[in-house]
Design a protein around this nucleic acid. Structure first.
Lengths: 121, 121
DNA sequence: CTTATAATTAACTTATCGGTTAATTAATCA
DNA sequence: TGATTAATTAACCGATAAGTTAATTATAAG
């Protein structure tokens, strides 16, 4: 896989992996916790592979606790996704909600006076 | 490819296809217009396939004009992407910008009194 | 009617993806 | 020490993704 964004989108292009992220949104979980809902459908090594795909894409981080491997979401790479897709906002808003766009610019101005949301820039 | 969102993410997991969307963001274009920047790197049938992937994912629509096939972005499916990723907003904001979150809820309330941004729901 | 242009289809190749089973590593527990 | 649990690695398989070249369709233009 070439660039990082492609790697991220590819990792998200699988319902099992998105379900794992949904699970992790509720809190940290070991690989076997993540595996539980899927063990009727696939083997544990298959789960390990999915976790590795998420990890290599930077969508999750994995640490060590005894023989367990607690995983958690890494929000940074999801921001890459939203930053990319926001470029196209006008295309899904089209003629709807001019007010929405206006309010958004107001909020953006307020925000840029404060922090820059953790971005390096 | 199974579900629609997986299909969409898979279509976006390729830099050539994302570049095509970037081109279409500047206006409608025929397949050969879309092909132009890539013909040093790949054949025209390869381009046709990329366009078909984007079309099947619902990211673009293609019409007919004589022997030309003008394409344009379909914003709806990009909204599916942003709607999905917004679930995880807290993970990239983490402890930053509590103000940001607050302002967002204010805006959301204002918006839900007006239209619902073209969503069917 | 013939030729040129735009785009697609067909057939094929190669690499990658998502899964399997069997074996292995590493830590805990009795 | 030996057994159990958590997770990974190795080797393999079938399906599909992404590219190729050659042939085909469809419209426009001389």
């Amino acid at each position: 896989m070439q660039d990082h964004l492609s790697q991220t989108f590819a990792a998200l292009a699988d319902p099992t992996r998105r379900a794992m992220l949904a699970r992790l949104a509720r809190g940290e979980a070991n690989v076997s916790d993540l595996a539980k809902p899927f063990l009727k459908d696939m083997s544990l090594p298959a789960v390990t592979k999915h976790v590795q795909v998420l990890e290599k894409a930077g969508l999750i981080t994995k640490s060590r606790n005894a023989q367990y491997r607690p995983c958690k979401i890494n929000g940074e790479s999801l921001r890459d996704v939203v930053d990319w897709v926001e470029q196209y906002r006008t295309f899904w808003e089209e003629s709807f909600d001019r007010l929405d766009a206006y309010l958004k610019t107001v909020v953006e101005k307020k925000k840029s006076k404060g922090t820059n949301h953790g971005r390096k820039k």
